[in-house]
Each structure stands twice: as C-alpha cells, then as structure tokens.
Measured scan of single mutants.
Amino acid sequence: MQRVNMIMAESPGLITICLLGYLLSAECTVFLDHENANKILNRPKRYNSGKLEEFVQGNLERECMEEKCSFEEAREVFENTERTTEFWKQYVDGDQCESNPCLNGGSCKDDINSYECWCPFGFEGKNCELDVTCNIKNGRCEQFCKNSADNKVVCSCTEGYRLAENQKSCEPAVPFPCGRVSVSQTSKLTRAETVFPDVDYVNSTEAETILDNITQSTQSFNDFTRVVGGEDAKPGQFPWQVVLNGKVDAFCGGSIVNEKWIVTAAHCVETGVKITVVAGEHNIEETEHTEQKRNVIRIIPHHNYNAAINKYNHDIALLELDEPLVLNSYVTPICIADKEYTNIFLKFGSGYVSGWGRVFHKGRSALVLQYLRVPLVDRATCLRSTKFTIYNNMFCAGFHEGGRDSCQGDSGGPHVTEVEGTSFLTGIISWGEECAMKGKYGIYTKVSRYVNWIKEKTKLT
C-alpha cells in the first residue's frame, strides 16, 4: 500500500490518463441519441435557420407576430419608411378606419389613436360632414345658397324668414311668412316636400332668348283662358290664391305678392273693366268669414305684352289694390325667389296649380277651390304637342294621358313649387288646347323671366 501511494504521488498524470480511459469505455446513459432527441424537440425550422439574422431580410411573422416588435424591426421587413409607417399605425392600436367614419364618399386613412378623412370636392370637416359648395344638395341650405369668396357655403332665406341657429334652416321672422300653410287642420295635408338634388348652379339658368321682337298675326285659340281631375282644397291650404270678379264672377285667378299687390295673367284683364279681388276665398257660393274683398285701382301688364300681336306672350300683369290686405292664416303671400332659384325650383319637376275653373272641358265651374299636382314636361315634348308657338318664356306641365289639367277660369292662378315646406311661385296658368285632352298640356308663363320686374313694381313704400 505504501508503494502504491508513492507511485500516485510521483505520477499524477498517469492516474488522470487511467481515469479518462475508464470513462470513455463506459456506456453513456444520461444523453439520448440524435434521433430520439429530435422526437422530443420537434420544432419547425425557421426561415433563416442556421444563418445569422443580421444578414437576412426581415420576416413579418418572425419579427412582429411571434413577439412584439419595434418600429426598427418592422422597418427591416418593409425596407421602406412609408410602408412601415402605414403598417405601424394599425399594428400599434388597430384600424381606426374600420367603422368607416368618413361621410359623403370620403376616404379614410388610419393613424395612431386617430384617423384622417380625405374629402371629395365640396366637403370638409373631420368626417367630411361639412358642405362647402352650393353645387351639392344646395349646400344643405333649406332655401338659398351662395358661395363666399373663400368658396364656403353661405345660406340665406327669402323675405319674412331668418336663418336658424344651425345656419342652414329657415324659420319665420314674421307672423305670416310667405308660402307657408298655417291653418292647423290643413298642415297635415301639406304636399310632399321637395329635397334639393345635386345641381350645376353655374349652368342652372337656361341660355334662352326671349323672342321679344317676333311679330306674329293673332292666333285663334280655343278655350285658351284655361282644375280638371283635381281635388277639393281645404280652407287655408292655398292662402296665396285669390279669385278675380268682373263682368262675371271667378273669371280668373291670381296670387298675393304682398298686402297691396296681386300677380295674374295679362290676358285676364281689360282696361276700363272694374275688377274686384277676393282673398281668403274657399267656396265661392258661401260666406265663410275668411274672405277679404278689395278693388283694383291700377293694372300693370308687362311692358312687352301686346294682345294685338299675341294674347299669351309675356302673359303676366300686376294688380294694385285700393287697401292693403290683412295677412292671416287664410290670406298669405306666395314666396318669389330670384331668377336663378325660381328656375331651379321649376326644374324640380312638379308643381301645384289651383283655381275655381271648370271641372271638365266646357263644363261647370268649381264651387270649392280645386288643386292638382302636375309634372313638368320637357321642352321637346311640349313643342311636338301643339302647332302653336311655345315661346321661351312659357313652359308645359300636365299629363300625356289627359284627364287632369287646369281649365277655363283658372287662368292667372299660381303654379307653385314647394321647397322644404315653403311654396314659391314658378308659373302662372296661361293657356292650353281644350282641357285635359290626351297628348295636350297646360301652358304656363315662366315666372323666372319676370321676377325682377315683379319685385321692382310691387315694392311697398
């Protein structure tokens, strides 16, 4: 034993070699072989497995989906700052455009905790909710729209109204504003409101030439003092309507412009014939205590009207009353817009006519005020429907199939267009061939041609 100890002390290297040989010859039971080890760690190889990531292109799944990435790591994937920024906006807080917040056709661009709407022409605001041009839906104005110097929408209202708090709607500024039905039992019968379409306001006024200088022999019209197929109006439903009495009662109609003036057809009036105007009328054979009678003290036909040349060209006249009318729910003026808007309103496509005229061709006159909704007829169809001249200051309205029309005794009465609950004068009943005849239409004086003249002559002093 002493000898062994001496050998170990003198030859430590020998001992180490012996131990190493023993270990190498022993069977290893701690580690699995290569094949079995792979069965336990069965993990798919990654895209760049075996390579240094710093030297390969980034992978979106590896960089940002398996674990949260930084902007720089995302930049490695896209290799483009702009594309990385677009991805980053949604990656950080989701897609803010998912709810489609942009209105009126706006395009949404996502941002971090926010979004941006790219608005089409005519709109602005956070969600493109603000109209900035009158060309689109009248700028959301209830009545009139004008573009300011910086191309912003400025709404306005006709006389007797003021802008509401929203700067879009119009509200009454006087007790009985024009064009409004205020009798409670008839307010439910107000005709369907007309909503502004998209309009090209630059070209809204037709490029028409008034044929002022045409000389033409007097034409022989049949029954051209021209509501057939209409309905009984309720008291106060058309408070701007008046009836004219002269040699015979209810020979023509008219509309209240203001307390002192009536507008009617020029062919209705004769110099030297006494005319009485009755406002607030409903049943011409009954006294309903809503009527107001006034005498006409002055007749002003349009300066281009000449019955000797043509009885229905420039067929418009103004009547001055001896005493002002007292405005109330049964006696209310009709609204008159400017030339541009009167023309736009007419193009809405349908209007209402009213009167006490004959209820059928050569038949009896109506006792109760009649009204009828009539569609506008395109000019080409209008011209083809008659052998008589249709001037540019006239328009056609009615039904091709016949059966409904204005008729004798309705002449001078109103053709009105309702705009968001307020009625505007767009025409004056003038003439036609018979009444409600198939293929024939009622012919009306186009008020847009005469609004400046009306307003100039009827100013209240």
Rank of each mutant, 00 (worst) to 15 (best):
T81R: 13
T445Q: 05
F238D: 01
E142R: 04
V273F: 08
E124S: 06
T458D: 01
P175E: 12
V77W: 06
V278C: 04
E434M: 12
G421W: 02
Y444T: 00
D95I: 04
E340R: 09
G357D: 11
F360W: 13
Y391M: 14
E82A: 15
W88S: 15
G50P: 14
A164C: 04
K440C: 09
S448K: 01
N295K: 11
Y91K: 15
A233P: 09
M394Q: 11
L369V: 08
L369A: 14
H303G: 07
D322A: 07
T84P: 15
P235M: 09
T342R: 00
Y441R: 03
S406Y: 14
G94K: 10
G122A: 05
C128Q: 02
N295L: 06
M6V: 11
G236F: 05
I336F: 05
E66D: 06
A265H: 02
P12D: 05
T16N: 04
G160H: 04
Y22F: 15
P301N: 08
N283M: 10
I7D: 05
L32Q: 15
A233H: 06
W118K: 15
L383T: 15
Y441P: 12
D315P: 01
T264C: 06
T225I: 11
Y22S: 10
Y91L: 15
S354N: 10
I454F: 00
A164P: 01
V269A: 09
F424L: 01
N283A: 07
K260C: 03
N100G: 05
R294H: 02
Q185N: 09
I214S: 11
V154Y: 11
W356Q: 04
I443P: 02
C97N: 01
C69F: 03
K446T: 03
G236E: 03
T190N: 06
W88R: 15
S187K: 09
E10G: 14
S107I: 03
F144D: 00
V242G: 00
R373P: 11
V92W: 10
A366T: 13
G280P: 02
D232G: 05
G94S: 09
Y341M: 10
R75G: 15
P235I: 09
C382A: 02
Q143I: 00
C141S: 00
C28W: 01
S204H: 10
L321V: 06
T381K: 05
V374Q: 05
V202P: 14
C117M: 00
E61G: 15
Q57H: 12
S385V: 13
I299N: 04
E86V: 15
V154K: 10
G442Q: 14
P120F: 03
A366N: 14
N38A: 11
N393V: 02
V377Y: 02
V30Q: 15
C382Y: 02
Q370W: 03
N113W: 04
K260F: 08
S255E: 02
G403V: 15
Y47G: 15
C97R: 01
Q185V: 12
T16F: 12
C252A: 02
N328K: 01
R180F: 04
T84H: 08
D338Y: 03
R358S: 14
Y312W: 11
T389H: 14
C18K: 03
S385T: 13
E171I: 11
G272Q: 07
H267F: 01
T276I: 09
R379N: 04
M6I: 05
Q241C: 05
N38V: 09
R358L: 07
I262S: 00
V269E: 02
D378N: 15
I284V: 11
Y441T: 07
S182T: 12
N80R: 11
K339T: 09
Y305L: 02
E259K: 07
K455G: 04
L211I: 13
E270L: 13
W261K: 01
T209Y: 11
E433M: 08
K188S: 13
T85I: 06
S25V: 14
R3E: 06
G253P: 07
G427N: 00
E165F: 09
N48Q: 10
F399I: 13
E320N: 02
S204R: 12
T215Q: 09
M65R: 15
L372S: 13
Q90D: 11
E401I: 11
F31D: 07
K440F: 04
G409P: 10
T29G: 08
T158F: 03
E340M: 08
G272D: 09
C435A: 04
V419G: 01
F348L: 07
V269T: 06
K293D: 03
S411D: 15
E86Y: 11
D111Y: 07
S329H: 07
V153F: 04
A337K: 00
I443R: 04
E27V: 04
G409V: 07
K126T: 14
L327K: 04
L383F: 14
G357I: 09
C407E: 03
E281D: 12
W431R: 10
A317M: 03
L189Y: 11
S255Q: 02
N213K: 06
K446H: 05
L189G: 09
A380K: 14
A173R: 09
G122H: 04
T186A: 11
K274S: 08
V30N: 15
L325H: 02
P375Q: 10
N295Q: 11
L32R: 10
H267T: 05
N166E: 03
G253I: 09
K137M: 11
G160P: 00
K446F: 02
R449P: 15
G427F: 00
I284S: 08
I262Q: 01
F251R: 09
T271L: 13
D405T: 15
N258Y: 01
K260A: 03
H314P: 02
C407M: 07
K446M: 05
K459M: 14
V195T: 07
G50M: 15
L130E: 14
V263W: 02
I210K: 08
V181K: 07
N147V: 10
K126M: 08
G421I: 03
E420K: 07
E401S: 10
A164V: 05
A436G: 14
V359C: 07
W453T: 01
V331P: 01
L14S: 04
E53R: 15
P120Y: 03
T287D: 13
W356A: 03
R162Y: 08
D95H: 08
Q237Y: 10
N283T: 10
K440D: 14
K45H: 09
A436V: 05
E171V: 09
N127H: 13
N328D: 09
C134K: 02
F395Y: 03
L325R: 00
Q370M: 05
E171R: 07
V154F: 11
Y391S: 14
H289Y: 06
T218G: 09
E320I: 00
C28Y: 02
F345C: 02
V92R: 12
I316Y: 00
Q241P: 00
V377N: 02
V77Y: 06
V269W: 04
S329L: 04
M394G: 03
N36Y: 05
K188W: 10
V195M: 08
K89M: 08
A397R: 01
P177H: 01
F87I: 15
S354C: 09
G122S: 04
G253E: 03
C335R: 02
N213R: 12
L321M: 07
V416T: 11
S49F: 07
S220L: 12
E79S: 15
C69Y: 02
E320Q: 06
G351W: 01
T29S: 12
T276G: 06
A250R: 08
P120N: 08
G13F: 13
S217Y: 12
T158M: 10
A265R: 02
Y341S: 07
K89Y: 06
D111R: 07
S350M: 08
F424M: 01
G122F: 03
Y47Q: 14
S156I: 04
G427L: 01
Q2Y: 12
K109Q: 09
V92M: 13
D338V: 03
D110I: 04
G421S: 06
V278W: 05
R294M: 02
L32P: 06
C145F: 00
H34N: 13
S11P: 10
V199S: 09
Q96A: 10
W88Q: 15
E142I: 04
Y352E: 03
D131Q: 15
V416Y: 10
V419I: 13
P333H: 02
L60E: 05
C382E: 01
G412K: 03
E116D: 12
E98V: 08
K457A: 09
I428C: 01
F388L: 14
Q185E: 11
G439N: 11
K362E: 13
E35F: 08
V227S: 12
S107V: 10
K68N: 15
I428F: 05
C108D: 00
N258Q: 02
I299E: 05
I390Y: 12
K188I: 12
N213Y: 09
K274L: 06
I344V: 10
Q90Y: 11
Q370P: 03
Q167V: 05
L211A: 13
Y305Q: 02
E285Q: 13
E401V: 08
Q2H: 08
A233N: 07
A192K: 11
T81M: 06
